[in-house]
Every structure is written in C-alpha cells, then in structure tokens.
C-alpha cells in the first residue's frame, strides 16, 4: 500500500471574479520511505500542491489519501490533527517562534498533541540531540545561526514522528555550505527510513532525491526516478 495516493486533484481559486486553475488533475503515489523532490517554475501550481499534500488545504476535486485515510474530505480541526500527527513541516524562512527557546519551539507540536510536559521535554531533547543541537537548546532563534535555526525547525518537524517530512525550499535562505549540511541531514534521515518530500527549484538539490516530480501549468510534466 502506498503512503500517499493522489487521484485527479484539481484546485481552483477565485481571483476577483476570475477562476484560476492552479492544479488541473494531478495523480501520483508515494511509498513509505521514498525521498521525492517536487520541482517547477513559480506559478506552476507547486505551492498549491504542497498545501494539499501537507493538509494545509483541500482539493476542489479529486481524492487524496494519506495512510489510507481520505484526507480530502477532512475539515478544520480534523486536518489540524493530521498535520500534527502525520506531517512535519520545514519552511524556507524557518518559522521559529522568536521569543521561545529552541527547546520550546521543538516542544510545540507535542503540546498541541496533548503530551504531558515531561514527555514533551524528553522527546524534544532527544530530537535536538539527533540534529546536533544539544548544546543550544536554551537559546532563542536570534542567538542561533541560520543553519542552526533550520536544524531546530527540522527537529520540530521530526519530534512527533511524522509519516512525511515536508520541506519547502529548506536551503533557500542558507549559504551553500550550511545548505549542504542541511541536505546531508535530510539524506541521513532518509537513510533511517524517513519519507521526505522536498520542494525546490534547484536541480542540484533535487538530484539527491530518489525521484523527481516536475510540475508545470498545474499538471505533472514528468515523474522520473533518479539514478
């Protein structure tokens, strides 16, 4: 069984009184443990697709299954629960809470999952250890380098053991060296069996993935296995 199954997904927006077709029928399967890059020029519908796969939004038409659940019929808080349990987000701009320490940031998904404080701490600390930030746990984002901030964000994405790690241009705000470090971290996570979906426009970064899906004009232009 596949982890993700998308069947004929379309998405229409209303811009003023004009209907815009952002996605025009997209279907694919993603299996457990895959490392996938989604590419495409801006305006291709890449972000819209990401929102739908990430359960931040629902398709206008089509079916989207995640772990055999038909998520496309879910609403509001049901989607929030799926995001909390199944998906770990890593954003280009890190999106850390500025007034909280690294540890507090990483604990946040567990708080929304309803774990007790002791368990939140224990898990968050072990994930921060995994990303090599055990010595920076009590620091606020402003006291961390860009690379460190992104590793906090990755720790936060991993802390609730999601089915999918979802990264949207994770190296976009980093210099090439720290970018490479982050990419290496993704590779390591993949080697440990983590399913990863990476959205990027850089071929170099996409090339580390096993498979690349290229989106153009709201349709899949190509879906290729990398060597």
């Amino acid at each position: 069984m596949s982890l993700i199954k998308a069947e004929g997904i379309t998405k229409q927006y209303l811009l003023g009184n004009q209907t815009v077709d952002a996605l025009r029928g997209i279907s694919f399967d993603i299996n457990q443990g895959e490392f996938i890059a989604i590419m495409g020029p801006s305006g291709s519908g890449k972000s819209t697709l990401m929102n739908i796969i990430g359960c931040l939004d629902t398709p206008t038409q089509g079916k989207y299954f995640l772990n055999q659940q038909e998520v496309s019929t879910f609403k509001g808080d049901e989607l929030a629960k799926i995001r909390n349990k199944e998906i770990g987000f890593v954003f280009q701009t890190f999106h850390l809470l500025a007034r909280n320490t690294a540890l507090d940031n990483v604990m946040l998904p567990l708080k929304y999952a309803g774990f007790d404080k002791a368990k939140q701490m224990k898990r968050a600390k072990s994930v921060l250890l995994q990303v090599g930030l055990e010595s920076r746990m009590e620091h606020q984002p402003s006291e961390l380098s860009g690379g460190q901030q992104q590793r906090v964000a990755i720790a936060r994405a991993l802390v609730n053991k999601p089915s999918i790690l979802f990264a949207d241009e994770p190296t976009g705000n980093l210099d090439s060296q720290t970018g490479n470090e982050v990419i290496k971290l993704f590779k390591d996570l993949h080697d440990q069996g983590q399913t990863i979906i990476l959205i990027t426009h850089e071929n170099e970064i996409a090339s580390i993935a096993q498979r690349t899906i290229f989106i153009k004009d709201g349709l899949i232009e190509s879906d290729t296995q990398n060597k």
């Binding site: 987000f89 954003f91 999106h95 929304y112």
Partner: peptide, 15 residues
Amino acid sequence: REIGLRKALGATEKA
C-alpha cells in the same frame, strides 16, 4: 504568520 505556523504544527481552532 505565527498563527499559520501554529496551525501547520497542529493547533486546533480552539487552541
């Protein structure tokens, strides 16, 4: 953006 992030991490409307 903070609210968006919190929601992305699984915050319910109630939270």
